[in-house]
Amino acid sequence: MASSLLKTYKKFKWLPFGNWLFSKAICKRAPYFATIKPKVTHLSSGRICAEMPNRRAVHNHIGTVHAIAQCNLAELCAGVVTDATVPNHTHRWIPKGMTVQYLKKADSDLKAQAQIPLPREWKDKEDLIVPVEVFNSDGVKVFHADITMYITEKS
């Protein structure tokens, strides 16, 4: 059974500017993500791709994309793909932790992707590690995050 978020994405993606509209809806639900102006470009059960434009508003003092802006992109990807993948009729999830690596200067638009291996058995009180990779416009990996999602059964 697809999550309501995944159903919404499937409806929006066929519309003109559908990915942009879906991304705006995500930011309305979680307003802090709007600070990075993300755009979800693909969403399916177990996989997400998203983009973030390089703008002065997300720069640090040396003119590159700020570390926390990269964390926001990673958290958005991990949260949305988890919501689209975890069977929402039997389980729920909440972010528990994040480990990040800043690999190179991020000085361009960024593209992120996250994948949850499927099929899988969902358990109660499980830590799900969602790896997120972020690449610059040349395809060079600039950032990696492992985001721990705590999965529990609904009672």
Results as ranks from 00 to 15, higher is better:
Lys105Met: 12
Val132Tyr: 11
Leu103Cys: 10
Trp122Gln: 04
Glu121Ala: 14
Leu128Ser: 06
Lys123Val: 09
Asp124Pro: 01
Glu121Trp: 02
Asp127Lys: 15
Asp127Pro: 06
Asp127Tyr: 09
Glu133Pro: 00
Tyr102Ile: 13
Pro117Val: 10
Glu126Gln: 08
Val130Cys: 10
Ile129Glu: 07
Glu126Asn: 07
Leu110Glu: 02
Lys104Tyr: 07
Glu121Gln: 15
Ile129Ser: 00
Asp109Arg: 01
Ala112Ser: 11
Pro117Ala: 11
Tyr102Ala: 11
Val132Asn: 04
Ser108Gln: 02
Ala114Lys: 03
Val132Ala: 07
Val100Phe: 04
Ile116Trp: 00
Glu126Met: 02
Asp127Cys: 09
Ala112Phe: 04
Ile116Gln: 05
Ser108Pro: 05
Thr99Val: 13
Glu126Trp: 04
Ile116Glu: 00
Gln115Phe: 10
Ser108Cys: 07
Lys123Trp: 13
Lys111Cys: 08
Lys123Tyr: 15
Ala114Thr: 00
Arg120Val: 02
Asp109Pro: 04
Ser108Gly: 02
Asp107Gly: 10
Leu103Arg: 14
Ala112His: 01
Ala106Phe: 06
Asp107Leu: 07
Val130Pro: 04
Val100Gln: 11
Glu121Asp: 03
Ala112Lys: 02
Lys123Glu: 04
Lys125Pro: 00
Gln113Ala: 08
Val132Phe: 12
Gln115Leu: 07
Glu133Ala: 13
Lys111Ile: 08
Pro117Tyr: 00
Gln101Phe: 09
Ala106Lys: 07
Val132Gly: 02
Ser108Ile: 05
Glu133Cys: 12
Ala112Thr: 06
Ala112Met: 07
Asp107Cys: 08
Lys105Gly: 14
Ile129Pro: 03
Arg120Thr: 05
Glu121Lys: 15
Gln115Thr: 11
Trp122Ser: 05
Asp109Thr: 05
Gln113Glu: 15
Val130Asp: 04
Val130Phe: 07
Asp127Ser: 14
Asp124Val: 01
Lys123Met: 11
Gln115Asp: 03
Lys111Arg: 13
Leu128Ala: 09
Lys111Leu: 11
Val130Trp: 05
Lys125Arg: 05
Glu133Tyr: 11
Pro117Asp: 11
Ala114Leu: 00
Thr99Pro: 01
Asp124Cys: 01
Ser108Lys: 01
Val100Leu: 03
Glu133Thr: 10
Lys105Gln: 15
Asp124Glu: 13
Ile129Cys: 09
Gln113Phe: 14
Tyr102Lys: 04
Lys104Ser: 14
Ile129Phe: 06
Leu103Asp: 06
Val100Ser: 14
